[in-house]
């Protein structure tokens, strides 16, 4: 690698988070949002759940955040509102990041999808749904990503025991179906 990164044409050299914050504030003029100041110093916004589509499309089109790096959630059980849904965006032209968060209640949590803005977000939203049970309204194929289909729980919720709740249930059901179909395969008939 060369010692200095090549300059991108038209990319203003941003230093620190002040340039990012100003750019984000300009892009979101007129949309209610709150700046929060997390310990890591990243530019972070808290928005209303209803404003997700507006904020995300402005961040993409006006502030140049062209990549969604992840979507996840924080479970604040037993506090309410229980979940904080987090999006993090990267601008490959300005080389900076922004984080957006919104709070959703613990009872049937759902937020709008942003897969129409970043198609790759579909996987992140599936994972978030799988692990936290947060539904993304408008997601075309919102099904489990890591856990098997038919699994009933959401493992990263705070009220989920880490050893699981009947972790072998799906396997046993599959095994019983298989044995009913073909009793030859059982190894212990005695």
């Amino acid at each position: 690698m060369s010692a200095t990164a090549p300059e991108r044409a038209g990319a203003p050299a941003t230093s620190g988070s002040s340039g990012t914050a100003a750019r984000v504030a300009a892009a979101l003029a007129g949309v209610p949002h709150t700046l929060v100041h997390p310990a890591d110093g990243m530019v972070s916004l808290e928005i209303e759940t209803a404003a997700v589509n507006e904020v995300m499309s402005r961040l993409r089109d006006r502030a140049g955040f062209d990549s969604n790096t992840f979507v996840t959630a924080v479970d604040r059980f037993p506090d309410e509102p229980r979940f904080i849904v987090l999006w993090q965006f990267l601008s490959t032209t300005h080389n900076d990041r922004v984080r957006v968060q919104t709070r959703v209640p613990g009872d049937a949590p759902h937020v709008p999808t942003i897969t129409h803005l970043w198609i790759g977000t579909a996987y992140f939203e599936r994972e978030c749904y799988d692990m936290f049970g947060i539904r993304f309204d408008g997601h075309a194929g919102l099904k489990r990503l890591l856990m098997p289909d038919g699994y009933e729980h959401h493992p990263l919720r705070k009220d989920f025991p880490h050893q699981g709740i009947e972790p072998d249930r799906l396997y046993r059901e599959w095994d019983n179906r298989r044995r009913e179909r073909s009793p030859l395969r059982t190894e212990s008939q005695t």
Binding site: G164, E166, D168, R172, T186, E187, Q189
Partner: peptide, 25 residues
């Protein structure tokens, strides 16, 4: 159904251990 040398399931196998005996259940 079973080969002559077929290994015997261990005591942790679900055929031997009743479901209610499994602490994970």
């Amino acid at each position: 159904l079973r080969a002559p040398n077929h290994a015997v399931p261990t005591t942790r196998s679900h055929e031997v251990l009743p479901p209610e005996g499994n602490p994970r259940s």
